[in-house]
């Protein structure tokens, strides 16, 4: 997350703006979900899934709202949210590459896939690249073991893949190789120089 960019910073991307539950159309969507589960405390996990779908991640502000609406102690809401691996507390990248590290994929070289993507795009496992383009995640078996090793590129399954093929597939959805070079980031923005890389 670009903490450095202040509220008035010119380069601040709109989707990184702080979540404001009250005057945000997303709040209405959440309200709808809460109604659907009739504000039942035992629906907390469902509600957290909904929050993640709507906002992309779980922010403290929204967790507070959830605690209030479901009448749950905030410590319980945070306890549940942090227990389950699928909930994220930071925004994900524009594209997500999730490498399966289940047993079948492990035996068929999942580690090499992670290494390959990590090196080619300059993004560490479990993290999002600084420019917000790509997140590299792991999953424990996505249930396509017959096609190991597999990865998910956004929602699509990339089956029986190799580091080279996976890297190529990621390039194809529009992610450039290597982390954005410093000089490319400022000044002459707009040209699609990097696209050919």
């Amino acid at each position: 997350m670009s903490v450095a960019a202040g509220p008035g910073a010119a380069g601040a991307t709109p989707d990184r703006a702080p979540v404001r539950p009250d005057d945000d159309p997303r709040a209405a969507l959440l309200e709808k979900q809460l109604k659907k589960v009739r504000y039942r405390a035992d629906a907390l996990i469902e509600v957290l899934h909904a929050v993640q779908d709507i906002y992309g991640f779980l922010s403290p502000e929204v967790l507070h709202t959830v605690a209030d609406e479901l009448e749950l102690p905030p410590s319980r809401v945070l306890g549940v949210a942090t227990f389950y691996h699928l909930f994220s507390f930071e925004p994900r990248g524009e594209h997500t590459c999730t490498v399966c590290t289940g047993t079948a994929c492990f035996v068929k070289g999942a580690d090499a896939l992670i290494e390959g993507v990590s090196e080619a795009f300059g993004v560490a496992k479990g993290e999002t690249r600084e420019d917000g383009k790509l997140s590299l995640l792991e999953a424990r078996c996505i249930g396509s073991c017959g096609l190991a090793p597999v990865a998910l590129l956004d929602a699509a399954v990339v089956a029986k893949t190799t580091p080279e093929a996976l890297v190529a597939a990621i390039r194809k959805v529009g992610v450039n190789g290597e982390a954005v070079a410093d000089d490319a980031a400022d000044a002459t923005a707009g040209s699609d120089e990097g696209g050919a890389a």
Binding site: S75, R76, L78, G79, T82, F83
Partner: peptide
């Protein structure tokens, strides 16, 4: 009070 809870796993 339910102030304290366990987070993470």
């Amino acid at each position: 009070a339910f102030t304290w809870g366990v987070a993470g796993r």
